[in-house]
Design a protein around this nucleic acid. Sequence first.
DNA 1: GGAACAGTTTGCTATTTGGCAAACTAAATC
DNA 2: GATTTAGTTTGCCAAATAGCAAACTGTTCC
Lengths: 116, 116
Amino acid sequence: MENYQSSLDAAFHSLADPTRRAVISRLTKGPAPVKELAEPFAMGLPAFMKHLRVLEKDGLISSEKIGRVRTCRVNSERLTAAETWLCEQRRLWQAGTDRLADYVETQMSRSIENAE
Amino acid sequence: MENYQSSLDAAFHSLADPTRRAVISRLTKGPAPVKELAEPFAMGLPAFMKHLRVLEKDGLISSEKIGRVRTCRVNSERLTAAETWLCEQRRLWQAGTDRLADYVETQMSRSIENAE
DNA sequence: GGAACAGTTTGCTATTTGGCAAACTAAATC
DNA sequence: GATTTAGTTTGCCAAATAGCAAACTGTTCC
């Protein structure tokens, strides 16, 4: 599944892993080299680099190598796209539950009317 | 990776697939039986059911079988958790870029002062 | 009770993943 | 120029995924 249909596939896929989310969290505070990003994790560098490659392929970060240091920075568009999608879903869901609440309220008023 | 460390792992994992996102999208408008949910997709029912099982295992939907019909509904907490995380990341990232903007502005004022 | 319907189970693929260890490249430092 | 440092490549492994087809279970309807 190399090619994602939508950028949402890519964004959510990257974010499904705790290591990768931690990297994003760190990078939201500012750019950092690979070494520093890898430090908090128990895994070896090759394994960690795979996560970085996934993040970059999925468009959530970008990186640039200067000398022997590769500096990574967060790429906010994909994050925003994911957030926007979730926000829209919540909006739709709330619209539904609001209609339900209205309906329940209406039914209750009727019951009271009938009881009077 | 049966057990997720965090509910975010589960939420983002489920959302990484376009079929599953479409199911969520449909369910935000209200509950629906499996048959109706499966209709728009080219794949067979067994493959589709796997997606539903993933969604349910990951806590994004719940379902109940009455007679021979299984009705699914969306489970908003996990979606909210994911949205909250993304929102927080954006907040942090914006704080950073705002600081950067301030810094650039300060530097520019100084250049102008020096030039005068 | 027989047919149609809604969903489920089983068994089979190919691909992707997340990790390891070991060897390697290129830049900085002494 | 030898050594440390930062990152990269290669080859390997076990587990999980996304799909298929075919056979099966239980419900509803005529």
